[in-house]
Amino acid sequence: MKKLLITLTLATVAIWAKAQVPVIQKPGLTGTTGTMVQPFLFSVNTLTAETPFWNLQYSGSYGERTAYPFGYDGVDQQLSVKGYLGNRFTLFSSAALGFDHAGHVASAQQAEVIRDFIGGKKAFGARFGLGMGVSHDFSNTTAIFSRVTGSFEVAKWRVGGNLRFEKAFSTRRDDIDLITSFGFHHRIAGSFFAGVEAIGQDLEGFWEQDEAEGGAKLLVGPSINMAPANSRFAFSICGGPVFYATHSTVMPSQAIRDIPLQNGFTLRGMVSFNLHQ
Score class of each variant (00 low, 15 high):
K2A: 10
L10G: 04
T12F: 10
V13C: 11
V21I: 10
G31P: 09
G31K: 10
T33L: 14
F40S: 00
L41W: 00
F42A: 01
P52Y: 14
G60H: 03
G60L: 02
S61P: 05
A67E: 07
P69W: 05
Y72A: 02
G74A: 13
Q77G: 04
Q78F: 01
Q78E: 15
Q78P: 00
T90P: 00
L91I: 14
D100F: 05
H101Y: 13
G103F: 07
A106N: 12
Q109G: 08
Q109T: 10
E112D: 11
V113Y: 09
V113I: 15
R115C: 04
F117R: 07
F117Q: 10
A126W: 06
F128N: 06
V134D: 10
D137C: 05
N140R: 11
T141K: 13
T149K: 09
F152W: 13
V159W: 07
N162T: 05
K167L: 09
R172H: 10
R173S: 15
I179V: 11
T180D: 05
F184I: 13
H185M: 07
A189Y: 12
S191L: 08
F192G: 02
E197F: 02
E197P: 03
L203W: 04
E204N: 13
Q209N: 13
Q209V: 11
D210W: 06
G214P: 06
L218R: 03
I224Q: 02
I224K: 01
I224W: 06
I224F: 13
A227I: 02
A234I: 00
A234K: 00
F235D: 07
G240H: 01
Y244Q: 06
A245R: 08
P260N: 15
Q262P: 05
N263G: 15
F265H: 12
T266Y: 00
G269F: 09
S272W: 00
L275T: 12
